[in-house]
């Protein structure tokens, strides 16, 4: 059912620079770039570290955990693929490693989203691409 809805949404494809990210996604791994010189972790895919401009980089698997930095709720249909989804949320997740990533929160109603809420990545799988979504971590009660 989710697949039917998702079919007409824009699905990204890897370019050369982002291929390790998208390959990692298909394997269920959130891959980031870590600067070999200053250790700053960044979202792919840029050749230079945006802190020290080094080009020496290692791809690393992120923890997949982070927190909600901010969020918004889309009420208008800007793309026909989202006609059945409004109102849907957009969230900026600040990953534990530092970078911020734009995604959607799943498993939570829009009214219950809060800043700072801890979240964890999960993967929405399509034919040839997997998309990172984030689910609130439930505390044991």
């Amino acid at each position: 059912m989710a697949d039917t809805q998702a079919r007409s949404k824009p699905l990204p494809e890897a370019d050369e620079a982002s291929r390790p990210f998208y390959d990692g996604a298909l394997a269920g791994r959130l891959m980031l770039m870590r600067c070999d010189d200053c250790g700053t972790v960044r979202l792919p895919s840029r050749r230079h570290c945006d802190r020290c401009l080094s080009t020496e980089t290692t791809w690393v698997q992120a923890s997949g955990r982070g927190s909600v930095r901010t969020f918004a709720v889309m009420h208008r249909v800007y793309h026909p693929g989202f006609a059945d989804e409004v109102p849907y949320n957009i969230a900026v997740v600040e990953l534990a490693e530092g970078p911020r990533i734009v995604s959607n929160l799943v498993g939570v109603s829009n009214a219950d989203i809060r800043l700072g809420m801890p979240v964890e990545v999960e993967w929405e799988r399509h034919n040839d691409v997997a998309l990172p979504k984030f689910r609130p971590l439930t505390s044991d009660r």
Partner: peptide, 13 residues
């Protein structure tokens, strides 16, 4: 299809 990391924006709506 949107290409690269920028595609995550469109994919999220």
């Amino acid at each position: 299809r949107p290409r690269g990391m920028a595609g995550l924006y469109a994919a999220a709506g």
